[in-house]
Structures are given as C-alpha cells and as structure tokens.
Amino acid sequence: MIALAFDNPLWLLGLPLAALPFAAPVLAPLGHPRRALAPLDTASKVVSILLPLLGAVAVTLLLLSLAGLHRTDQTITREGRGAQLMLLIDRSSSMDNSFAGRRPDGAEESKAMAARRLLSDFVDRRPHDRLGVAMFSTSPMLAVPLTDHRTIVKAAIATMGEHGLAQTNVGRGLALAIGAFDGATAKASRAVVLVSDGAGVISRDVQANLRDLVGREPVNLYWLFLRTEGAKSIFEVPKSGERDTPQARPERHLHLFLQSLGVPYRAFEAENSEAVEAAIDEIDTLEARPILYEERVPRRDLSRLLHAGTALSILLLVLAKLAQRDRLSSARMLAPIRPAEQAR
C-alpha cells in the first residue's frame, strides 16, 4: 500500500482551476466563414479533448506539488534474525571503579566505561533487534522502552559515563526489565541482559514477584557479571565452614535464584574488558532467532516527479501552440477572386 499525504492541503482548494482549460482554450479561437467547411472529424475531437486535458493535468500537478504531495514514511514488517533485548544496566557507584577495584586512572578504564563501549558496539552489530534500556541502583529506572531506534538506545547507554548512584537493588531492576516486554510480539525471542558488578539480596516478596513475572512472560536471562579483582566467583561453592547465605555471598545466591527460575539462563563472568567482549559475542550468537522487525521506509517527496510531469504537459501545449495556424491567413489564398468581386 502506498500512503500519500499532503503538507499544505489548503492548496488543494485551487483544484477547480483545473477546469479552466475546458472553459478557455489555449489556442486562439478564430472565426471561420462556414463551419461546415471544417467538419468535426475524429482527429479534431481528440485534439479538442486532449488539449484542455493537458492543461488541466498541468494545473493539477502544479497544485499537487504546491500542496506538498509525498509518500509518507512507513514501516514494513520483515523477517530477520535477532531478538527483543532489554539491557539492564547496573548504575551503582561501584561500577565507576576499575576491574581492579580502584578509581580508574589513565591506563585502565572503569567497569562502567568498558561496559558502555562494548554494549554500544553490541547494539551496532545487531541491526534487527528491538532494544530497550533499563537501569537500576536503589530503584529501577526505565530509560528507553523497547524500540527499533538505535541512536536513542546508544544515547541511554552513553549515560554510563556519568557517575553512578548508591546501591545495587537487582531484584526490582529485574522485575522492571522483565515487565517491560509488551505482550504484542510474543513470537520473537525475548531476553534480558543484566550487566552488573555485584548483586544484592532479593527480598522474598520480590522473588515471588519475579517468579510470577517469568511464569507469565518467559524470557531468556543473561547475566554479565563484571567481577572485580579479588571478589568471589559466582560459580565458586563455599568451602565448608564458610558462610553460604545471601547476605555473605549475594552474587552466588542471585545466580542460584536465576537458575531456579526455570527459564533459559546463562551467566558470564568477566574480569576484564576482553572477557566482557567474549561474553557479548556469545550472547550475540545465542540470541539470533527469526524475528519480525520493522523496517522504516523514509518519506519520499514526489515533487520532482510532479514537476517533470508538469513540464512535459506544458511542453506539449507549447508544441500545440507552435502548430497553431491562422486559418484566415490561408483562406487569403482565395484573394485573387475578391478584387474581381469588388471590381464588379
């Protein structure tokens, strides 16, 4: 379907002007002594309709172009490979530190900056995804709801360059990210990519809430754990005698909780930006299932076409005008008879 629209539809009020060529001929009307001498043959009929029609077409096309006729931008649904991805980004202040747990200096970048750079590349690599960005610290924040527009997603990721907030309340962040999928496009693969450098205890009611949400809207979960040097691994089982509680080992217990949700889940542990890159590459390959994505067909201005059409019809009119002959002047070929008549 071609959707057409006008910028200044008021010009269309001038459309009755297109009837003008039918009322006023472009060729000069000339008197003729006897109409019967010029019978209305087929060629004359065609010309007498074509000439005003050409004029009407020219006037109409000009008015349409002045009214700003254009094909509107539209979206076409196509199938590609990708996913619906919510990026859930930890904005707690610890992300401002480097992987070594220090304030970043010139040589090493902070975890937030590394994640920002790599996530931004990731967004560039996946042209068909629908992406959204949620952030969390003490409270969850939805920065960009799921969208096809890449630049705004990258603009939201770019805010990771600013200082983070206070705490890491990962439970509510997850609830926000999982809840951010609209039910409309259930066929596509949905995934939440959690990027954090730590975890907090998820309270019992938030846990129940998450189980409920995941039960209703199954999502694939990826946890990119940016491990600070010296921090305990999420996969490491505590030795006997070590405390194994959510308070003592929140990351390990978040991992156990996410495993228990009953949805596809993978955790990646990264101690440096190379490992982050490898993990992102893996998510890239895992989240490539058929997805219906919308391709935007930009607005197309039709004025060039209209003007070309106008120029052509006016050119034909000019040619017709050039072909115009003064019939009386050819009738003057009878002149030799007339002096005789006058002389009589």
């Binding site: 960009v144 527009h149 805010t159």
Partner: peptide, 23 residues
C-alpha cells in the same frame, strides 16, 4: 540529577523519546 538519555536528534528519535518520557 541523573541522566537517562543523552541528547539525541529529536526528529529521528521522537517516538521512543516520547515513550521514555511517558515511562
């Protein structure tokens, strides 16, 4: 004051920006 979205071209990104504001 905490940033959610850095300045982006508004003509290109108006629909998602409006969504983000509504959220």
């Amino acid at each position: 004051s905490f940033p959610l979205i850095e300045p982006v071209d508004i003509c290109e990104n108006f629909p998602p920006f409006a969504d983000a504001v509504a959220a």
